[in-house]
Design a protein around this nucleic acid. Structure first.
Length: 113
DNA sequence: CCCTTGACTATCT
DNA sequence: GAGATAGCCAAGG
């Protein structure tokens, strides 16, 4: 069997498990943090194979949107799990815990329209 | 061995 | 802001 996968999966799962409630990380960020740069796409595979208890919903795309189609059930599920932790989504984007830009906060509160 | 597939990302229109 | 495009890379057919 593939040695890479088992080692990779464990490193990824450990990293994801370390994400604190109320925090989010992008796939690329997780990959890098786990020691596997440029493996963002592999992270998604590791998620699909991940244990139930893993907080997979705290992993989102680099642009702060969710990885699933907005009309899919998985999207709704992830959004629900995030909201249960106090993380909400405005205009399709996850609200970052740390707001540095007034512009983005402005846009998040008022929406693009 | 070649081709296709993604729960991705960065860059350019 | 929304598409299109090009990198990315292991897995499976």
């Amino acid at each position: 069997m593939s040695e890479f996968r088992s080692k990779f999966d464990q490193a990824i799962w450990q990293t994801v498990a370390a994400i604190k409630p109320g925090q989010v990380m992008s796939y690329g960020q997780v990959a890098r943090s786990a020691g596997f740069p440029r493996h963002a796409r592999m992270v998604s595979k590791a998620m699909a194979r991940s244990p139930e208890k893993l907080p997979w919903h705290r992993v989102i795309k680099s642009d702060f949107t969710l990885a699933f189609n907005t009309d899919s059930e998985a999207y709704t599920l992830q959004q629900g799990l995030l909201e249960k932790e106090g993380i909400y989504i405005i205009s399709g984007k996850v609200i970052p815990t740390e707001q540095d830009s007034e512009k983005s906060l402005d846009e998040l509160m008022w929406g693009p329209e």
